[in-house]
Simulated scan of single mutants.
Amino acid sequence: MLVVEDRGGAVALMLASLLFLGTWPALLTLLERRGRLPQHTYLDYSVTNLLAAVVIAIASGQLGGSRPDMPSFFTQLTQDNWPSILFAMAGGVALSIGNLISQYSWAFVGLSVTNIICSSLAVVVGTTMNYFLDGRMNRADVLFPGVACFLVAVFLDSAVHSSNAKDEEQKLSMSGGIELSSDVADKVKLLPDQEALDDGGDDDFGTGTAEFIMQVEKRRSIKVFGSSRWLCLGLAFLAGACFSLFSPAINLATNDQWHALKDGVPHLAVYVAFFHFSVSCFVVGVGLNVWLLYRPVAGVPPSTVGAYAADWNGRHWALLAGLLCGFGNGFQFMGGQAAGYAAADAVQALPLVSTIWGVIILGEYRRSSARTYLLLACMLTMFVVAVALLMASAAHRKTA
């Protein structure tokens, strides 16, 4: 069995995980803005997400020699390690629900805002739990200042969101044919001149302009105008609460800190835990999205299994997103097993990557005010400092 045990290899896995986990949300958001139903996208994503776990489990869990304390992948599938399996599956359920909620939150409050709230909650809650579960193996004097930087980033993110919302309100109010409701602090109600909009067809407007915002709303599958800002932010916080639980669950599954396994039963290898984690994530994700095909939410039109099977528009991007997320999660857990799960939570700085993709692909923060750009730069700087501190707290896990 191939196991990463050195600190350098663990940090390399964390960096790869950071890139992958920061990229796949941009792909799903892009598909939603192009009009593809989120249920169709998530079903495609779920298939390759599970495929990544199977590849990691078989390729890494079967290669190399096995040890008595670390059997091969197929050997562990036959052992009496159900307590650890249940912890892993509980983590998969938490991640699947969090990802599903995030898919709608990305539409309502934006890719950057959602990921920052989710990542910060995952670090503040999840990293603290992992620190104590790992027997305080990471340097507290380095780790917790990093956690504090994530907290600062949350407050800066709130300021960025507020400033950018005001910028968009100003753009819309200055554009002809658009009328804003009086309660602009809580909602933006768009009333375009439909005849003029139809005459415009699918012409591309300048990114970040009022016309661009109108066209995005016209094409996207989740309609967001007129929604309550606080309800939308609540979705992001709910997703973050789910994300804060899945890493500690994997930690318990692989290290058995609560001594749930019988005497003589080896701890669950990280590859095996990730496999069970991904299976439960797949079952929950597919089950909920098949149900949402016929009982959609957030103004999304209904669909059917047959319509999903025939929908090839953008399917390759959804499949790629599943692979990126699957390998990203797998690399995070492998790095955490080697250097501590608290340090591996450095990958929660994924909004650094997501924000870059949000600006390049989705046009977020284009043509915003200087104040918004300054706050955005300060927020991203906090994330850079935070990820550096969490990685610097990495230690070497002592194996039995």
Results as ranks from 00 to 15, higher is better:
Leu15Arg: 00
Ala16Leu: 15
Ala16Pro: 04
Ser17Asp: 04
Ser17Gly: 13
Leu18Trp: 01
Leu19Val: 10
Leu19Phe: 12
Phe20Asn: 04
Phe20Gln: 04
Phe20Ile: 07
Phe20Ser: 08
Gly22Lys: 00
Gly22Arg: 02
Thr23Cys: 11
Trp24Asp: 07
Trp24Ser: 09
Trp24Met: 10
Pro25Ala: 15
Pro25Gln: 15
Ala26Trp: 08
Leu27Gly: 02
Leu27Cys: 08
Thr29Asp: 12
Thr29His: 11
Thr29Pro: 00
Thr29Gln: 11
Thr29Leu: 09
Thr29Met: 11
Leu30Ile: 02
Leu30Ser: 08
Leu31Pro: 01
Leu31Ile: 08
Arg33Met: 07
Arg33Thr: 03
Arg34Phe: 05
Arg34Ser: 02
Gly35Ser: 06
Gly35Glu: 04
Arg36Trp: 01
Arg36Gly: 00
Leu37Met: 12
Leu37Cys: 04
Pro38Leu: 11
Pro38Ile: 09
Pro38Lys: 14
Gln39Ile: 09
Gln39Thr: 15
His40Gly: 08
Tyr42Thr: 07
Tyr42Val: 11
Leu43Asn: 07
Leu43Pro: 02
Tyr45Trp: 15
Tyr45Gly: 04
Tyr45Phe: 15
Ser46Gly: 10
Val47Glu: 08
Val47Trp: 09
Thr48Phe: 11
Thr48Leu: 10
Asn49Ala: 10
Asn49His: 10
Leu50Val: 10
Leu50Pro: 07
Leu50Asn: 06
Leu51Met: 10
Leu51Cys: 00
Ala52Pro: 05
Ala53Leu: 05
Ala53Asp: 01
Ala53Thr: 05
Val54Glu: 06
Ala57Gln: 05
Ser60Met: 13
Ser60Asn: 06
Gly61Met: 06
Leu63Phe: 13
Gly65Arg: 15
Gly65Ile: 03
Ser66His: 13
Ser66Asp: 14
Ser66Ile: 07
Arg67Gly: 12
Arg67Gln: 15
Pro68Cys: 03
Pro68Tyr: 00
Asp69Ile: 07
Asp69Lys: 01
Asp69Ala: 09
Met70Arg: 08
Met70Gly: 01
Pro71Asp: 10
Pro71Cys: 02
Pro71Gly: 02
Pro71Tyr: 04
Pro71His: 02
Ser72Ala: 11
Phe73Cys: 02
Phe74Ala: 04
Thr75Val: 10
Thr75Pro: 03
Thr75His: 11
Gln76Trp: 03
Gln76Arg: 00
Gln76Phe: 05
